[in-house]
């Protein structure tokens, strides 16, 4: 039986800590374990944009997807491949906590690994951080790496 672990990555130091922890887990579980790296570009369908921004949005999404793929997912996958850990990666747009949970449910994952959020300020206080939202709403166990 294989075990899938969802890992939230974003190229930051915190994301790398989550990845490092997931690597250790994968090594302990063995070859049956697969890591699914998820890089979420925060995006809300309810924001206000100018007509010009809208007309270039498709192009902008392609650029953002490519950047996330090349700068976050590809290097992480390369390092996992070197260590013989099975992994794949995906770039998604939306609310990070929902996307990570949806992918975990879709893959029937064992758990989600994320790093402790570094979000500060009013919005994190009012709406809660990505990590806090994920912990509260996830359908699978969540490991928060400090």
């Amino acid at each position: 039986m294989s075990a899938t672990i969802i890992v939230g990555v974003d190229g930051s130091e915190a994301g790398n800590r989550a990845l490092a922890y997931a690597k250790r887990l994968a090594t302990l579980i063995g070859s049956e374990c697969k890591l699914e790296l998820v890089c979420v570009v925060e995006w809300s369908p309810y924001t206000f944009q100018t007509p010009e921004e809208n007309s270039h949005r498709k192009k902008q999404k392609q650029i953002e997807t490519q950047n996330a793929q090349e700068r976050v997912i590809d290097p992480a996958l390369a390092s996992l491949k070197e260590e013989g850990i099975a992994a794949s990666g995906v770039v998604k747009f939306g609310k990070a906590s929902s996307i990570l949970n949806n992918i975990a449910v879709e893959h029937n994952a064992e758990q989600i690994v994320v790093a402790r959020s570094t979000e500060q300020g009013l919005s994190a206080r009012v709406f809660g951080s990505v990590t806090a939202n994920l912990v509260m709403s996830a359908n699978v166990p969540v490991t928060v790496v400090s």
Partner: peptide
Amino acid sequence: KGDYSDPNDAGEVSHFQALATALSG
């Protein structure tokens, strides 16, 4: 409201955004 939109395809201009942009004009 996005009831008919697949969240997995998010990242491009939503119905809400198109409406809001048009309304701002």
